[in-house]
Write a protein that binds this DNA or RNA. Structure first.
Lengths: 176, 176
DNA sequence: GTCTATAGCACGATAGAC
DNA sequence: GTCTATCGTGCTATAGAC
């Protein structure tokens, strides 16, 4: 593989990983192409050699975010649903893991409504994958859907509320 | 009360009610002052006679949205938590009620992270009021927090997912 | 492929007529 | 108080040098 192809691939990967973090943290509108490229140590102009538009980047970054978040949350998690639930609910709480990828399903849950159909399809696939994964821990589809709603709602709320005490009570209450 | 004071009050109320609908539906960034004023049958210039900034409008509209949504959801709901839960989960499903105010806690759940501290405080107060209201139906604080997370997560998801069948299954699964 | 520079547009906010 | 007109700014996207 020639050097320039590797270089291009590495640049694109770097952009995607930076974009995944930024978009999940701030949403589509609050993140400019400039912010993403700066975060990846490049300038605006280089962006369009890799992506055809900002929406294209968002769509691909969503997949990367989902993959990385799953890695993050299921890392060392072999003890069934209770362990998964605990790791998911605590994803934003451990300061040591503060720069890890958080779950795009929860953090982009209202952002996604304003996006184009292709992006919404991607989001929906990610959500369905999450539900299937919960089912694989021994839950029925209905149980998995309800547990997913609770976990996603709790994590989304935990990022939107500022009262640390309330957030702690909320996460404990959802843990069962 | 002189005519012009009444007129001003009515204009402001109209702007607030239109803004509450638009912001809850689309979020802060996707709604321009122009959109709000057009929806209220006025022009951009008149806006600053009533509000000092777009953020000021958003903050006040959030309170109006919470009040109207509560009216909408608790309307004819005297049968305890099960009835509240049913009405809350179905708020976006009945096409006849499609233009009613939906719950800002659920629909602005990720939008609110990017707003200024004053707005986030307002959101937090609204959320705490919602939890207290659930508690008043005979639940403990922990139970109320968990039920709130499930309901809010389910409604937020139901607006973000496009598969009607999946949404229906999700809402039924959360109904108990 | 990456850079600098800029076109083109949309938005928030202000100024001044009525 | 409401209107029209405008300034200033920030953004996406493109053009052209290297």
């Amino acid at each position: 593989m020639p050097w320039d192809v590797t270089h291009k691939t590495k640049s694109k990967e770097k952009i995607l990983i930076c974009a995944a973090k930024l978009f999940v943290e701030k949403g589509f509108d609050a993140v400019g192409i400039n912010d993403v490229m700066k975060s990846a140590n490049m300038t605006r102009g280089a962006f369009y050699a890799h992506f055809k538009s900002k929406a294209d980047l968002y769509n691909q970054a969503l997949v990367v975010a989902a993959f990385k978040a799953r890695e993050n949350i299921t890392h060392g998690c072999d003890q069934g649903f209770a362990s998964l639930q605990h790791n998911y609910l605590q994803q934003g709480q451990d300061p040591a893991l503060k720069d890890n990828q958080q779950c795009p399903i929860a953090l982009l849950i209202s952002d996604i409504r304003q996006r184009e159909p292709l992006v919404r399809e991607t989001y929906e696939k990610v959500f369905k994958g999450f539900v299937k994964f919960i089912e694989s821990q021994g839950l029925t589809e209905a149980e998995a859907l309800k547990e997913a709603a609770t976990m996603i709602g709790a994590v989304a709320l935990s990022e939107s509320l500022t009262d640390k005490n309330l957030v702690e009570k909320l996460l404990v209450a959802c843990q069962r």
